[in-house]
Computed example of a mutant assay.
Amino acid sequence: MWQSNDDEIKGIARDLAIYAFMTSADTRGISKFFKYVPMSLRNEIGYVDRMVNAYNMFNDKIMQLNTEGSEPSTININEFIKNNWRDNNIVREFKPGKT
């Protein structure tokens, strides 16, 4: 749909992508279809910018914590992932053989 030459069909694809993002927030599941939205459409609806901003806000908060407290506050992302490996919202399930 997104690669259609018809502007109305492209508009419907854009609306569906926005709806999919707003209802699932990019979570995985059998009834979730945002995972099938191509990156070019994700960029068009602002998803990529939103993720970059969230990443930058996270990094800024970590830097703020490191400079404010009397003790250094650091979050080692690898340790965070290791300690939250059972949370599928943080660490996605790995299925060998699937891409």
Rank of each mutant, 00 (worst) to 15 (best):
K10R: 07
I12P: 00
I12Q: 02
I12D: 01
A13W: 00
A13E: 00
A13C: 02
D15R: 02
L16E: 10
L16G: 07
L16P: 03
L16N: 12
I18L: 01
I18S: 03
I18V: 08
A20I: 01
F21W: 14
T23I: 10
T23W: 02
T23K: 06
S24V: 09
S24A: 12
A25I: 13
D26G: 08
T27W: 05
R28T: 14
G29K: 01
I30S: 08
I30H: 11
I30Q: 11
S31P: 03
S31L: 08
K32E: 12
K32H: 14
F33E: 10
F34P: 01
F34C: 03
F34A: 02
K35H: 10
K35S: 10
K35V: 08
Y36D: 11
P38A: 05
M39N: 13
M39F: 11
M39K: 15
M39Y: 13
L41P: 01
L41M: 04
L41T: 06
R42M: 05
R42V: 07
N43Q: 14
N43C: 06
E44L: 00
E44S: 06
E44A: 04
I45L: 01
I45S: 01
I45W: 01
G46D: 03
G46W: 00
D49L: 04
M51S: 08
M51Q: 15
V52L: 10
V52E: 12
A54C: 08
A54H: 10
Y55I: 07
Y55P: 02
Y55V: 08
N56P: 03
N56M: 10
N56E: 11
N56T: 14
N56K: 15
M57N: 14
D60F: 07
D60M: 05
K61A: 09
I62S: 04
I62K: 04
M63N: 15
M63K: 15
Q64H: 10
L65S: 13
L65G: 11
L65N: 14
L65I: 11
N66M: 08
N66P: 00
N66F: 07
T67S: 08
E68Q: 14
E68M: 11
G69E: 10
S70Y: 11
S70K: 15
S70V: 11
S70L: 07
E71K: 15
E71C: 07
P72R: 15
T74L: 07
I75D: 04
I75Q: 03
I75M: 03
I75A: 04
I77L: 04
N78K: 13
E79T: 15
E79D: 13
F80N: 05
F80R: 02
I81M: 11
I81T: 12
I81D: 09
K82M: 08
K82V: 05
K82H: 12
K82P: 03
N83H: 13
N83L: 06
N83T: 13
N83D: 12
N84T: 14
N84F: 06
W85P: 01
R86D: 11
R86A: 06
D87E: 06
D87F: 03
D87I: 05
D87G: 04
N88I: 13
N88C: 06
N89D: 09
